[in-house]
Deep mutational scan, measured.
Amino acid sequence: TTTITTTNEEDARRIATEWKNKGYTVHVEKRGTTFRIEVR
């Protein structure tokens, strides 16, 4: 599992989409101002 964190919502969406397009399972969680993107 790879975890990526960013405070930028646009980055979070872009990163999540990129990983999904590669065939990975992506889970995005917002904690306060931080977005945690888990890639499996």
Rank of each mutant, 00 (worst) to 15 (best):
H27W: 11
G32F: 04
F35P: 01
D11K: 06
V26E: 00
K30V: 10
T6L: 06
T33V: 10
I4L: 08
T34Y: 13
N21K: 11
I4Y: 14
E9G: 07
T7N: 12
V28C: 13
E18R: 06
T17P: 00
T3D: 04
T25M: 12
A16T: 06
T6K: 03
T5I: 15
T1D: 08
T34P: 00
G32I: 03
V39T: 03
T6Y: 03
V39R: 03
H27Y: 12
T6N: 02
E9A: 11
D11C: 13
E18G: 05
I15P: 00
T33W: 05
D11N: 07
F35W: 15
G32Q: 04
W19E: 02
R13H: 12
G32S: 04
E29S: 11
R14M: 07
K20W: 09
W19T: 01
N8I: 06
T2S: 08
E18V: 07
E29V: 12
T5K: 06
I15C: 04
K30F: 08
T34W: 11
G32L: 04
G32E: 06
E38T: 15
V39W: 04
I15Y: 04
R14W: 05
E29Q: 09
W19S: 02
E29T: 14
R31F: 14
V28H: 01
T17N: 12
F35K: 01
W19K: 02
E18T: 06
I37Q: 00
E10R: 09
V26T: 04
K20F: 11
W19H: 04
T34K: 10
E38H: 13
R36Y: 15
K22T: 03
K20Q: 12
T6D: 01
F35E: 01
R40I: 14
Y24V: 03
T17M: 14
T17E: 14
G32M: 03
I15T: 04
E29N: 06
F35I: 12
T33A: 12
A16P: 00
T17R: 12
W19F: 10
Y24M: 04
I4M: 07
T6Q: 02
T7I: 07
T6I: 07
I4K: 02
W19Q: 03
F35D: 01
H27E: 07
K30Q: 11
V28G: 00
W19C: 03
T3S: 07
G23I: 01
H27I: 13
K22Y: 05
V26A: 03
I4T: 03
T25I: 14
D11M: 10
V28R: 01
Y24I: 02
T7P: 06
T2G: 06
R40G: 09
R13I: 14
I15G: 00
E9Q: 07
N8F: 05
T17F: 10
G23F: 02
T33S: 13
I37N: 00
H27V: 13
Y24D: 01
E38D: 07
N8E: 06
R31P: 02
T25E: 13
T7L: 09
V39F: 04
G32N: 05
R14T: 06
V39Q: 01
R40S: 15
G32D: 08
A16Q: 05
T25G: 05
I4V: 07
I15L: 07
T6W: 02
F35M: 04
V26S: 01
E29H: 10
V28W: 07
R13S: 07
D11A: 09
H27P: 00
T5H: 10
R14P: 00
R31I: 15
G23P: 00
T7D: 15
R40L: 13
E10G: 07
H27G: 04
V26H: 00
K22D: 04
I4H: 06
I15D: 00
K30N: 06
T33D: 15
E9T: 04
G23H: 03
F35R: 02
K20A: 12
V39P: 01
Y24S: 02
T34S: 11
R14L: 07
E18I: 10
Y24L: 04
T2E: 07
T33L: 12
N21G: 07
I37S: 00
T17A: 13
A12H: 02
T34E: 15
V28N: 01
T7Y: 12
T34M: 13
I37D: 01
R31Q: 13
T17H: 10
I37A: 00
A16E: 08
V28Q: 02
N21Q: 10
I4A: 03
K22C: 09
E18L: 11
V28I: 12
Y24A: 04
T33K: 12
A12S: 04
T5M: 12
A12T: 04
R14I: 07
T1S: 10
T2K: 13
R13W: 14
W19V: 03
R31H: 14
V26D: 00
R36K: 11
N21V: 07
E9Y: 13
T34V: 14
T7S: 10
V28K: 01
K20E: 13
A16W: 06
T6G: 03
R40Y: 14
F35Y: 14
T25F: 12
Y24N: 02
E38Y: 14
G23V: 01
T1G: 10
E18Y: 15
F35V: 06
V28T: 05
F35C: 03
T5V: 13
K20R: 14
W19Y: 12
I15Q: 03
E38S: 11
V39K: 02
E9V: 08
T2D: 05
T7Q: 11
R14S: 06
H27M: 10
K22G: 04
G23L: 02
E38G: 03
K22M: 10
R31D: 15
I37K: 00
E18P: 00
I15A: 03
E29F: 12
A12P: 00
E9I: 11
R36F: 15
